[in-house]
């Protein structure tokens, strides 16, 4: 990452297929927005400005999953132009909720929704995270990313440092917050299996975690899974719940889990 002080970092923000929530989150930094636009040179941000330039970049933030052939081309072009590519939000890091089907299920569902009509402007492909097509340097998960996480990332990037990592599952923050554990009340909370970073927002509100930051990297899956089983939860139901926000990465998650339990 360039650390040249008299040269502002050139940043591009790109949206592939998703809900636009991660880009919107940047606009939601209302009180910091003017400073952001002053501290960095925002070269491209379609949602916010019309004078966009597609040139060389220090950092490209890419939001959304890759869901059309045209997006594959766009993504490859972004990779060529950017020194650092950041997968920004769950759709880019994991594929998002739209990525959980198998290829066959996806084909079948696509046909059911759109019939036999061939799209004239581009061809649909099954949604994938961006690292299926290009090398990705950094990952900022979350559906959507959080404001603290984004500002933290930006400030560190401006100083030439990599982003903070979130090695814990949601339960850790949940415990810091002294919440009553929902699992103990029989509510299927995915906190033990989900990457922390949101601040345990849902359990703070007595609502179970649905896993929207994606599976935790460093969690001890084996013991967490047996814990859930011990508590009498149906494993199939838990796996289905897990799949909702794990995109294409669920497989990896379970392979790791299998290894751990051997």
């Amino acid at each position: 990452m360039s650390k040249n002080n008299d040269k502002k970092l050139k940043i591009g923000i790109y949206e592939l297929t998703g809900c636009a929530g991660d880009g919107l989150l940047i606009l939601d930094c209302e009180m910091e927005l003017v400073d952001i636009f002053q501290a960095a040179d925002i070269q491209s941000f379609l949602m916010a400005k019309s004078d966009n330039i597609d040139g060389e970049l220090d950092i490209a933030l890419v939001e959304g999953s890759v869901s059309t052939e045209r997006e594959i081309e766009e993504l490859k072009d972004i990779r060529k132009r950017a020194q650092v590519v950041v997968a920004f939000g769950l759709c880019a890091t994991h594929g998002g909720i739209q990525a959980r089907f198998s290829e066959e299920e996806w084909q079948k569902n696509l046909k059911e929704v759109y019939g036999d009509i061939e799209m004239s402007h581009t061809k649909a492909v099954h949604s994938k995270p961006i690292d299926e097509y290009i090398d990705v340097d950094l990952y900022l998960p979350g559906c959507p990313v959080s404001k603290d996480q984004f500002l933290n990332f930006l400030v560190r990037a401006l100083g030439g440092s990599p982003p903070e990592v979130y090695p814990n599952p949601v339960c850790v923050t949940c415990k810091y917050n002294e919440n009553d554990c929902l699992l103990l009340k029989g509510i299927p909370c995915l906190g033990p299996l989900t990457a922390d970073g949101c601040g345990a927002i849902c359990p703070n509100h007595n609502v179970p975690c649905y896993g929207c930051w994606g599976p935790a990297e460093g969690a001890n899956f084996t013991s967490e899974f047996y814990l859930l089983q011990e508590k009498g939860f149906d494993m199939e139901a838990i796996k289905k719940r897990m799949a909702n926000y794990s995109g294409t990465k669920l497989q990896e998650f379970f392979e790791k889990f299998k290894k751990e339990s051997q």
Partner: peptide, 27 residues
């Protein structure tokens, strides 16, 4: 944008999972 097939995602899921997922259509 590509198709996300959101209406298919919740099939076979519990109502509360559907309530969590379907707002993801639009931020």
């Amino acid at each position: 944008e590509g198709p996300r097939l959101i209406e298919k995602l919740a099939l076979g899921r519990t109502p509360d999972e559907d309530v969590s997922m379907s707002p993801r259509i639009c931020a």
